[in-house]
Structures are given as structure tokens and as C-alpha cells.
């Protein structure tokens, strides 16, 4: 009656739970797209996608930034105000004095690296440190650009306004981001160390690796993608505002989790994170618009969509053993 399958599994083990989990972000994205297509068939066009997804690119980049931090068991509560700060620098210094602008942006990535080092060396809770940093970035953003305005550099608007044949630019960009980060984090040999530092830091240190370095690398990458997010955002909107990125902190965390990531244990998925970000961006903007939700209840609908999508993910994967 019993086969030998239970005691001698095949070499390449197929884990159905893992497979379902991996497919979930894509399924939720598909459902949102179907809903939009049903409500407004015209949105399913080259132009429709360009418009709907343009703002998804900065969100996807911020989500990737958050993902690197989550991969080493930390959380970045400052990424939203950081993106706002980068936006303000981009619309002012980067446009007026490009060299200085580049220097400021590189410096801000350096600050991220320092934060990583500080958090590791002093064994600090990242939530509090980045909470403090969220004030700092917000303050700096106001100092750089006291009132909304500024101007995106010409080249940036050009890039964000590209119109490649057949496939809308945001989709191309999303695929490129997902693939590049996937290869970098999931396929390179140092990527394994980085994720291992989230999974079992003691083991990584015992094997002779520097945990300080893994933290610094993860936070620098978060800073880099935060900068890219701010650039992409300003490329779209063409002008800035100190509060422009405030919603990104929570969107980025939700995107990582929606994409199959977990807060601890180094379990993250770059492809999932990008899909999660796209899903959230579509749900929060386009879907609600097409559903004609009254303005008072727009925020609530946003919350409801988050709950539904995450509950689906949780319910489908809840069959954890004791």
C-alpha cells in the first residue's frame, strides 16, 4: 500500500507549498488586472498601461530597497521620507548643479551604509534608528525645497517618458529591475551570504564572514535603490515636494510581504517584491479610480484591498505543520 516515496524523496524535491507561495504574488496581480479590465476595458492598452504603471516604478524601486533591509532582519521606516529627500535634491541641485547633486546623492547612500554599520556595531533596533532618520530626511527635504516646485532634469524626464515598441516602458523597467536584483541577490555567491546573514547570523560569522560587511552592503543597496526610486519618481512628476514620498514606507513594506517575503529569517523574493509593488500601485490608484469610490472612502478601500490580498496569501499558505 505505502510507496517508498515518503522515505526516499527524489533528488529535486518539489514542494507544493513553496510553489503556491511563489505563484501567489503573480496570481494577485492577475486578479487586479482582470478586475481593471472588467471595469474599464480601454485601460488594457499600450497607453493605458503606461499611465497606470508609471507611478508603480518608483514604488517598485522603493520596495526593492526595503527588501534588502528586510533580508538582513531589519526594517527601514525612513525609506519614504528618504525618497522624498532624493526627489527634492533631484528637482533642485541635480538640475541646477549636476555635479553637486550627484555628490549629495552619493553621500546619502554613504549615510545609509553608515547606518547599517551603526546598527550592527551598537546592536541597535533598526526600527528606532530609521524612525529617527525619517525625521532627519524629512527635515533635510524641507530645507532643500521649502515649498513644492523645482524641475526634473531633462534627461530624467526623457528616460521616464521612453516609448519602446510593443511593450510599455514601465513593464520593461519592472522586468529589468526584477531580473537584475534576482540575479544579484538570489544567484550570486555573495547574495547567498547576504541572505544567510538574515537566516542564521551566528552561522555566517562562525564560517568567517563579516556580519558588519553584510549589514553595510544591504543598507548601501537600500540607499542605492532609494535614490533610484526618487529619481524615477521625479522623472514622472517633473517637480518635487518634500512630502512626495511619505506613503512609500508603508507601501514598500507591504510590497515585500505581499511578494512572499518575511520580516525575519532572510526569506525574501525580488521578483515577488516587484510584482507586489505593481499590485499595490494598481490597486491603490487605478482600480479605485475605475470603481468610482467616493473620496471619503478611498483610503478605506486601500486598506481593504491590502487586507484582502494579504489574507488570500495567508490563507493559502496557512497549512503549516505543528
Amino acid at each position: 500500500m505505502t510507496s517508498a516515496a515518503a522515505s526516499t524523496p527524489s533528488r529535486a524535491r518539489f514542494n507544493p507549498r513553496r510553489a503556491i507561495r511563489a505563484a501567489l504574488p503573480a496570481v494577485s496581480l492577475a486578479l487586479i488586472l482582470i478586475a481593471i479590465a472588467y471595469l474599464n476595458p480601454r485601460a488594457m492598452s499600450y497607453l493605458g498601461f503606461s499611465l497606470m504603471l508609471n507611478l508603480a516604478i518608483p514604488i517598485a524601486l522603493a520596495t526593492i530597497a526595503q527588501m534588502f533591509v528586510i533580508a538582513v532582519n531589519d526594517l527601514d521606516l525612513s525609506i519614504g521620507t528618504f525618497v522624498g529627500f532624493v526627489g527634492c535634491v533631484t528637482a533642485t541641485y541635480l538640475n541646477d548643479e549636476p555635479a553637486l547633486g550627484v555628490l549629495i546623492l552619493l553621500g546619502s547612500i554613504g549615510i545609509y551604509a553608515l547606518l547599517g554599520a551603526l546598527i550592527y556595531v551598537r546592536d541597535l533596533p533598526s526600527i528606532v534608528v530609521t524612525l529617527g532618520m525619517s525625521f532627519v530626511w524629512a527635515g533635510l527635504a524641507i530645507l532643500v525645497l521649502p515649498r513644492p516646485g523645482g524641475r526634473a532634469p531633462e534627461w530624467l524626464s526623457t528616460i521616464m517618458g521612453l516609448k519602446p515598441p510593443f511593450v510599455p516602458f514601465p513593464i520593461v523597467a519592472a522586468v529589468v529591475i526584477a531580473v537584475v536584483v534576482h540575479i544579484g541577490l538570489m544567484r550570486t555567491s555573495y547574495g547567498a551570504i547576504l541572505r544567510g546573514a538574515g537566516g542564521n547570523p551566528v552561522a555566517i560569522r562562525r564560517a568567517g564572514w563579516s556580519l558588519l560587511k553584510t549589514k553595510v552592503v544591504a543598507f548601501s543597496l537600500a540607499g542605492l535603490f532609494g535614490v533610484l526610486s526618487g529619481l524615477a519618481l521625479i522623472g514622472n512628476t517633473t517637480s518635487a515636494d518634500a512630502n512626495i514620498g511619505n506613503g512609500y514606507t508603508l507601501l514598500s513594506i507591504a510590497g515585500v510581504i505581499l511578494g512572499g517575503g518575511e520580516f525575519v529569517g532572510g526569506r525574501v523574493s525580488p521578483i515577488g517584491a516587484v510584482i507586489g509593488a505593481l499590485t499595490l500601485a494598481l490597486a491603490a490608484n487605478s482600480l479605485l479610480q475605475f470603481m468610482h469610490i467616493p473620496p471619503d472612502w478611498q483610503v478605506a478601500a486601500n486598506g481593504a484591498i491590502l487586507i484582502i490580498v494579504l489574507a488570500a496569501r495567508a490563507l493559502l499558505t496557512r497549512r503549516e505543520s505543528l
Binding site: V299, A300, A304, L306
Partner: peptide, 19 residues
């Protein structure tokens, strides 16, 4: 619904805000 508390309470806060 097994939603992580950070996101659950955040989503709830959106709904409460609208109310």
C-alpha cells in the same frame, strides 16, 4: 486572516480614517 501585525494594523488604520 494571519496578516502580519504591522500591515494588519496599518490597513485597519486606513479604514478607521475613512470612518
Amino acid at each position: 486572516l494571519r496578516i502580519p501585525p504591522i500591515i494588519a494594523t496599518l490597513s485597519a488604520s486606513f479604514i478607521i480614517q475613512s470612518v
